[in-house]
Amino acid sequence: MSLTASDPAVVAAERSAMPSPGSAPLMRVSGLRVAVDGGRREVVHGVGFEVHRGETVGIVGESGSGKTLACRSLLGILPHGADRTAGELLFDGVDLGTLSERQWRGVRGARISAVFQDPASYLNPSIRVGRQLDEVHRVRVGLSRRAARAASVAALARLGLVDPERVYLQYPFELSGGMLQRVLLAIALAAEPELLIADEATTALDVTVQAEVLDLLAELRATTGLTVILVSHDLAVVSQVCDRVYVMREGNVVEHGPTRRVLRAPQDEYTRSLLEAHDRYGIERLHADAPQEEAS
């Protein structure tokens, strides 16, 4: 039997997934608007969301929903022709929208980092992956050449790459998609950021490797307190790792709340249509297999 928002299991799940009362979010976005075509066409319409320390928050929606533009705004790396026209982006109390490019360099890649869908396109194919990771350790962390190499090999090992010394010496084209994504994660986490934006980071991976990367993100969160924004069109992925979820459609947030509540008792018709589209990929099985919480 399907659950409704008033069912005890849903109420208990929603209560347990909510941030602690009075805790300030690490990231709070309000009134975010993004326009393209020289400002003539608005594609993100006053979006707001927040993420608390240690949370994994999902932002989901179909291609073109505005989720990627919203999150790239948090990094100050909107594509050519796109501009943030309004909105407050508070990160640890500082409005990112007021930063100069010099100030951004102290935030982007250091306190806020990101991994994207196609890791190969973010790595230089002519430079060994170890050297590319070394550069981050030297520039962002300030390590010596020798210390950077040791830190890079240790990072590759921590991210589950077998024979990290060998991987360190390889070129990107010699590695599989899953290995490349782990290398990109190592680069993104080198400076120990507080917030990681994972934008469709598992989309191009096969199911087994996808599960490994999701497990890795969960482990990093548990061991380091990493805060994650997971951008995805795949509700099955979001259901596995996210505490709360925001559903976007055509540049608007149409529903948000604790992941279990949103996925088991969606209030918006669009969210229901997304769930129906994902039925064949196992989301109903995940619901059926999930333990039933009791109201406290």
Rank of each mutant, 00 (worst) to 15 (best):
V36G: 12
A186V: 09
A155N: 10
G39Q: 03
T85K: 09
T208A: 10
L217C: 00
V136F: 04
L175P: 10
S176M: 06
G257L: 07
D134A: 07
D118I: 05
D243W: 06
G61R: 00
Q181M: 04
H256Y: 14
L3I: 01
E50A: 14
I283Q: 10
D92T: 04
I77C: 11
F116V: 01
V247F: 00
S16Y: 13
A265Q: 01
G257S: 00
V253W: 01
G64L: 03
V29L: 02
E135Q: 15
L78N: 08
E294V: 13
E276R: 15
D289C: 09
Y246W: 01
H278Q: 10
L214V: 04
G46T: 05
L263K: 03
G46C: 06
T56R: 13
V44L: 08
L90Q: 11
V228R: 08
V167T: 14
V237E: 02
A201D: 01
Y246R: 00
S144Q: 03
S6F: 10
V44F: 07
P79V: 07
K67G: 00
I283W: 11
A188V: 07
L69N: 00
L175K: 05
V207A: 15
V43P: 02
S100Y: 08
R158M: 11
H287P: 07
Y246P: 00
T223Y: 05
G64F: 03
R105E: 12
G64M: 08
D199F: 06
S6H: 14
P258N: 05
A114F: 07
G142H: 09
A114C: 09
L161M: 11
E42P: 04
G76L: 11
L275Y: 03
L185A: 07
A198N: 08
L263R: 09
L69Y: 03
P25D: 06
G282M: 09
D215K: 11
D234K: 06
L159Y: 12
L159V: 11
V139S: 12
R53G: 12
E62V: 00
L274P: 00
G106P: 01
T271P: 03
H233D: 02
R221V: 02
Q210A: 11
T203C: 07
G31D: 15
R182Y: 01
R72P: 06
S121V: 05
T203I: 08
D92V: 04
R244K: 05
S100Q: 04
T56N: 07
D83Y: 09
R28W: 01
V241M: 07
R261Q: 13
E55V: 06
A151M: 04
P164G: 13
G106W: 05
L205A: 04
P291A: 02
S30R: 15
E88P: 10
P172S: 01
A9K: 06
S6Y: 11
Y122C: 13
E255H: 04
H52Y: 13
R102G: 12
A150W: 03
L159R: 09
V115W: 01
E135K: 02
D199C: 12
D206S: 08
A82S: 15
L196V: 02
V115S: 12
Q210T: 08
